[in-house]
Structures are given as structure tokens and as C-alpha cells.
Nucleic acid binder design. Structure first.
Lengths: 231, 231
DNA sequence: TGCATGATGTGGTCTATACCTCTAGTGTGT
DNA sequence: ACACACTAGAGGTATAGACCACATCATGCA
């Protein structure tokens, strides 16, 4: 089987939810299962995922209801591409600029490298299902990754590229703050000026302590939400 | 059934993992299921949870292995008081309002309770080193906590109060989004209108599945930042 | 009118079984 | 030695059926 049946069922239910209002009830599991031609267990597996994503809420004895429609990003560190795929969206990327420069004092401090070190700066627009989701500015030491062409980043995953070069991320720090979009960001992300947004900053190193990357990402606040499950 | 069988099985596997080293393989699912006296499907449900928690890693065709110890828990939910203390500041609190009301449809959905249930709503200004840091709106079912007086919350920790009443939080979900402050929030928090801020929403339940609280907090973006360490 | 109660239908759990896909080791032929 | 095919056994998916726990509503009694 190319794709798990519960994945396609999950997507069908997503479509179904799209036609409902927040708070509306989904059909009962037994009906929905026979409608979609799967067993109830398989249907439940699909619904389980949607419930974990927060798209729907189940109430025992009552029914299953449509919840607030928002994209969620787990707080675990994953790449943009992987994150979007896990949510059934198609991640793509458009490279806005790619240039070389010196690290400078600020970046040098963040990555714990010499300010004179040569750096590749890449600005990318990240899209999910073809809709702008985030602007990502990536700083990578030149001697780690070598010269790059925009097409090297076409297939989306920068980490695949790193892995090909034998670079493995060992540890890092990430900070998250709220911000609002400025003129340029608003235009590229297609949101009104000064819309709420997340500002992510991440610095990572490999096992030898060499700086791998510094990333500054601005995520649309209207389509992004961070969620954690607590135990 | 008091507790789901897969929950107790999950805990048994946790104990089993405690005796193993990182990278060790767990017994095959079929053996483990018969050893523990459950069906393989039930066992898998228990293992599913542990895998989601990151305690173990499954590799199709190979086996199930003990994973690297957990990381990046710094974003996990702690109370405001504890959070501030860890940041080296002195937490205090001022109760702005305290009233009873019906849950209503939205809150009912978030807490998975009846919309007609009686709720206590508490609005508190949270301060760190005497400076306003966040506005916290707390919703708690009346029959869980009983009538409250503002002075019940004076010493700051709502969770101590819950513990006194024998209420223990078992699990929950938390979401974080960027927002901007409105007029009232700006005035109370002493920041300019439409300043960037975090909006936290947290719902928690006890082990019996009873809703414990729904909390909506607005944190100043200029003084509060989330950080995670990645490994 | 108001309240208890039971019927109905919902999601929640568990089982037994079957077959698929993938990994890793074995063994054979070259 | 090496390369390859095979295979046993691991996790992954899917089914049908049974029963449980809970919410809701209609019914009927007081």
C-alpha cells in the first residue's frame, strides 16, 4: 500500500470539516465509517490524529465536534518541511536571496565564531499548500556548506542538504518571541501591516562544536499556533 | 473499568524501560503482549503513547528501542510563580475580578464539559519583581473548587489551592500564539497599545477526565521570551 | 409543572485474526 | 572473499465484533 488508508481517510475528514462551522458535530463514527468504506477502528485512527492536532474535539456519549481551525506546530524541534508534512500540507520554498557576507559582531556572538568568518545568507519564503507561511533567514558558515546555488534548496529541506555534506546537528538553542510584521514582511507574507507574528531564532552546532546555522524566522500568527501536550 | 488497560500496560512498560539502557531493544510486541496478558492491539496502543512521548523509538522490521533521554522540556507547563522564580524574579499577584457564570458553548467545548456547568472566573494581574508581566484569566468548574474569596489567591499559587482540595492535574493541552494588546490590556500591563504579546491558552484535566481549568494568559512580549535547548 | 428514569445513541476499550512491509541475518553461488 | 537471494521475524495496517461508559432526550409518574 502506497499510503496508509487512515491517512487518506484523515484527509477526507479534513475536507468534510472544511464545510462545517466551528462547533458543528461530525457524523457518528459508525455511520462515517460505513460511508467512507472503512472499519470503525480505522476511522478512529484517522480521527485520533485530527483530535491530537486540535481540529476536532470528542465528547464521550455526545459526539465529535469541529474545533477552532488553526495550524499547529509542535514545540519539538523539527524542520519546516517535516512539520508541514506531518500536518498533511505540502511544504514548498522560494528563495528570495542568496549571498555571501562577513559574520560581523552580532552574528559572531550568536554562533560563537569569529566576526570575520565568511557566511552564506539565504532568505527563503516558506509556503504550505502554496500559501505563504513564514520568512526564514538562514546564516551558514561558508566553509561548512560551500558555495550554494538557489536550486540546491529547491526541494525544500535544508537539513537533507546538510546531511549530504556530512553535517549532523548536535545541539542548539531556540528562542521564541511575539512580534508584528513590518512592511516588507507583510507584503511577502500577504498579511496586513503589523499583524501578530512569531519570531523564532535558532542557533545550532555539530558534535565538534562548529557552528552550523543561525536561523531567524517570522511566522504568520494567523495561521500558526504552537501546541504542547502536558502530562 | 476504572482505568483503561492500556494505561496500566503503558506504566508497566515504563518500569520495564527503566531497567534498560539507551538503545536496548524491547521484547517483540507479540511476546510482550502475551507476557502481559493483553492483545497485541492493546499493547500497541500503550507503546504508541510512549513513542509519542519520545521514550522509545520504533523501527519497522527491526524492533523497538529505548530512546535518548528527554529534552526541551523547558517549554512545558509550569505555573507562573514557579516560572518566574526560575527566572530569578519574585512573583506576586493582584486579583482584578472574581465571579460565577455559566460555561457557555465555547468554554464548554474547550473543557469538554456541559455548557450549562457553573464556572468561577478569576482575572489576575501577575507581576514579576513588582512589574506587570501578564494578565491571567482562569476558568474553574464551581463544583470542583467551591466558592472562592479573593484572599484565597493572595499567596499566589493556585495549584497549591487545588492540591489542598485534593485535585491533581493529570494532563492537558496548551497553545501559544502571538497577539497584540488591546486598550484594557495595554493599560493594565503598562505597555503601548497594540504591543506584541503572547497569548497562552491551557486546558487541564484530572486523572478521572474531569475538567480542572481553562486559562487564558496574555504575556508582555517585551519582557517575556520562550527559550528551548535542543539536543 | 417538575422531576426521576429508562431508552437510545454516542464515543471508548479490547479482542482475535489476517496480511503487508521492511530489516537483518543466513546461506549459497560465484 | 564477495555479492546476491532468500527468509524469519520484527513492526505496520486493517478488519469485524463485542461490550463499556457516558450524555441526551423522551417518557411517565408524582
Amino acid at each position: 500500500m502506497q499510503q496508509a488508508k487512515y491517512h487518506s481517510i484523515r484527509d477526507e475528514i479534513r475536507d468534510l470539516i472544511a464545510d462545517l462551522q466551528v462547533g458543528d458535530a461530525l457524523p457518528p463514527e459508525r455511520s462515517l465509517a460505513s460511508e467512507l468504506g472503512v472499519s470503525r477502528m480505522t476511522l478512529r485512527r484517522a480521527i485520533d490524529e485530527l483530535a491530537r492536532e486540535g481540529l476536532i474535539v470528542r465528547r464521550q456519549g455526545a459526539g465529535t465536534y469541529v474545533a477552532e481551525p488553526k495550524v499547529s506546530q509542535s514545540l519539538a524541534a523539527t524542520s519546516f518541511s517535516q512539520d508541514m508534512r506531518e500536518r498533511g500540507m505540502v511544504p514548498t520554498s522560494r528563495t528570495l536571496s542568496l549571498e555571501q557576507l562577513q559574520a560581523g559582531p552580532q552574528l559572531g556572538r550568536r554562533l560563537e565564531i569569529s566576526p570575520s568568518e565568511r557566511i552564506v545568507r539565504i532568505v527563503r519564503l516558506r509556503l504550505a499548500d502554496a500559501a505563504p507561511m513564514a520568512i526564514e533567514t538562514l546564516y551558514v558558515p561558508l566553509d561548512l556548506i560551500g558555495p550554494l546555488e538557489p536550486r540546491d534548496l529547491e526541494d525544500g529541506s535544508f537539513y537533507d542538504l546538510l546531511a549530504q555534506k556530512g553535517v549532523v546537528i548536535d545541539h542548539g538553542v531556540q528562542s521564541i518571541e511575539p512580534t508584528v510584521t513590518d512592511e516588507g514582511e507583510s507584503e511577502v507574507l500577504d498579511v496586513p501591516l503589523r499583524s501578530p507574528a512569531f519570531l523564532f531564532e535558532r542557533a545550532t552546532w555539530d558534535a565538534d562544536g562548529r557552528a552550523v546555522e543561525f536561523v531567524r524566522s517570522v511566522y504568520r500568527g494567523d495561521r500558526y499556533r504552537l501546541t504542547t501536550e502536558l502530562y
